[in-house]
Write a protein that binds this DNA or RNA. Structure first.
Lengths: 137, 137
DNA sequence: TCATAATTTAGAATTATTCTAAATCCACTT
DNA sequence: AAGTGGATTTAGAATAATTCTAAATTATGA
């Protein structure tokens, strides 16, 4: 009797490997790539494989325990923050920062009307110079 | 005396290859991938190579003649629309639509203040179901 | 014309990610 | 406690997108 919710019963288990990956992502405010997560995970569980890291990240993302950020065509980054939030990307060094602007959420209905899409979520992305790069110029 | 602006003088020329690529991107409202642009460009200039398509796309993007859209970790898409605008992405079929919400631009300063970034541009992305996929559910 | 710089080309290389097939693990059943 | 089936893990191969390399070509301008 799988109700479709949560992790339970036979399938969809939070295995030791998945726990390790989750722990790594939750252990930092940074937005790690799969490669960085693999390195960190191997320190906690040396036998873990690259494929399992990818499988686990997908699993955790599908379960809503972490979120995936994809910018540019570089490697995906994984974020422990799963609530709605916005991003700022540095056009100089690529640095990525989270922030939350309540006004963004308010644009959901407006954006839906304009695009004729049935809305699910909205994200605002600010492109600019991070404090470090901005100071240099 | 390169003033740093526009296309002129020796370097940075709009070669036949680059013109063809530009013509392909400008020739449709769709958002083509590099592979699709390569196919179309070869019909106009059979000798053009894949690498040149990539080089040209980068050149045209840097010159501000086209814009590059990167979603998920699939292939970049190229857009003839270079002005500020927003995107709606269908979470079901991946369809991508442009629209413009003037309210988004108004959030630039607010987002800059919150993130402490020196702002350059803002971009809103709506995730949801496109009209077709929305009708099915 | 000659020299120099920019550009194009084909194909190799790189990077990120997914796939495959075999091995392992786990919860049940007999 | 042995057997079964499903889920998961593993190592490595495969794929896809993009960038790099080195040689050839083209344009530019003294």
């Amino acid at each position: 009797m799988n109700t479709g919710s949560e992790i339970e019963g036979g399938a969809r288990a939070l295995t030791p490997q998945r726990q390790v990956v989750l722990r790594v992502v939750r252990g930092t405010e940074a937005h790690l790539t799969a490669a960085e997560i693999y390195d960190a995970a191997r320190r906690l569980l040396p036998s873990i494989s690259y494929a399992t890291v990818y499988n686990s990240l997908r699993f955790l993302r599908d379960e809503g325990l972490i979120s995936e950020i994809t910018f540019g065509n570089s490697a995906s980054r994984y974020d422990r923050e799963t609530g709605r939030h916005d991003h700022a990307v540095c056009t100089e060094c690529g640095r990525l920062t989270d922030f939350d602007l309540s006004e963004t959420a308010a644009l959901l209905k407006l954006a839906a009307r304009r695009s004729k899409f049935k809305p699910q979520s909205v994200h605002l992305t600010l492109y600019g110079l991070c404090p470090d790069c901005g100071a240099k110029s």
